[in-house]
Design a protein around this nucleic acid. Structure first.
Lengths: 242, 242
DNA sequence: AAACCTAACAATGTCGAGAAAATGAAACTC
DNA sequence: GAGTTTCATTTTCTCGACATTGTTAGGTTT
């Protein structure tokens, strides 16, 4: 049973679950987050059947789960569509995410043990490398950077001890990641991501909860405003792929 | 299209959605929250088919959504069961819920308008009556009290302006309500619920966010400890209904 | 007693048919 | 000509039967 790794919600074995419904869920989830399936795109079962080589029953079950996640919109008797990207929703999403992430980080700093510190250090090390590579080679944000970023933020909160906080956080993280990946990221060079991440890691390892929470909040806010700015050029997309 | 009202998550039209899958979801959800379906109970599609008079396809879709909510556990190729009641999970649940509810309350107090104040006053009025009735007639907690309680807490946070905070809050509220309804509530008389609720309403209307949040936190903590205490008599249930 | 095999059972997935609803086009009315 | 109604087409949703796969328990063998 290979663990292919896609987004981050480490709950499912992803794209290879025990049942076809789980597999469909994982693959569709990844495809939606990475914008392989565009926002607003209609998700007709017949079409998906041939794309993923999976029957209609597991596909429908996967859609219902995705709708519950907020990645897919289920309209009465009009089928399913990929959830649209709405700047207002992202602002809201970011707010909720910040609330949860800050609390989880605070708890992690309170309760984290040596193994947790090691995880944070390791994730921070990877992140620093990816940040450096990103700032050198401007332009496209590679998957490896997204993985490192998810990994670092997950490591930071991984000792919070609350399965539910982590679950909620994971869902919100994935939703936000979709917004991030869909945007152009033109101003990513203007930020010193390496410094931002390093500051968060340092404050965390120093067990300075107040500072770490403040930094995380600013970190998220900066991403949000960068996203809002980059949207001024490209309007919100709401296509209908045939 | 009658809006039958069940728990509180006002998202679905409940038990009467446009599609049978939605209807099944709403009815099962209500039945699980109200402990009509006992924790740990196996949910065999064949059985549910005859109970709810709905085919297997929409039933399975409903189960997947419920599994996503955390009300149902989906095990590999071994079908579905009602999620067990685990004291440790309730503690965790309560923690996450408190975090979100406090933030939503704070935002509501910041942004709430006159209509919101009116909603809080109205919900507080109903709640006071139900609290009084409950303390007089000890024992069973009626549905009308649960409705009033849900209504009050929803009214309090309803002006927070964040759809996602409200959505997350709703899900956690329902999960917590199941724990509450499943427990014996023997010590409910020891608490002056009327006073607790009144204090929260007063602090909220006075726009005293810090006090209101503190009171809400205590309110939830008291419920949690009362629940933990009442469990000492009756052990955790994990039945297997044939 | 432990490991293995086998048979019964349960869950999952596929398929095709049919009902209900939505969409779009044509005809009709004002 | 604008707006509405009617009708046909398409799509979604649902059902039931069946095939497949996985799980479990009991019995056999070593």
């Amino acid at each position: 049973m290979k663990t292919e790794r896609y987004a981050e919600t480490g709950e499912q074995d992803v794209a290879d679950g025990a049942t076809l419904a789980d597999a469909a869920y994982g693959r569709l989830r990844r495809d939606i987050i990475t914008s392989v399936r565009a926002p607003g795109e209609r998700l007709r079962i017949e079409k998906l059947k041939s794309i993923y080589q999976i029957g209609p029953t597991p596909l429908r079950e996967a859609m219902q789960k995705l709708a519950q996640d907020g990645l897919v919109v289920s309209e009465g008797n009009r089928g399913f569509t990929v959830a649209p990207l709405d700047p207002a929703e992202f602002k809201d999403l970011n707010l909720a995410r910040t609330v949860i992430e800050k609390e989880a980080l605070r708890l992690s700093i309170e309760q984290g043990d040596d193994a947790w510190e090691a995880r944070v250090v390791a994730a921070g090390y990877i992140m620093a490398k990816e940040d450096a590579a990103l700032m050198k080679a401007q332009g496209h944000v590679p998957d490896s950077w997204e993985r490192a970023n998810s990994g670092l933020h997950l490591a930071l909160v991984s000792a919070c001890g609350s399965a539910w906080l982590l679950k909620l956080r994971g869902g919100l993280h994935d939703l936000c990641e979709r917004y991030r990946r869909a945007s152009v990221y033109q101003k990513i060079g203007a930020r010193d991501l390496t410094a931002e991440h390093a500051a968060i890691v340092d404050a965390t390892l120093a067990r300075n909860a107040d500072l770490a929470c403040r930094l995380i909040e600013e970190h998220f806010a900066l991403t949000a405003s960068a996203l809002a700015a980059s949207r001024e050029n490209a309007g919100t997309v709401e296509r209908d792929k045939k």
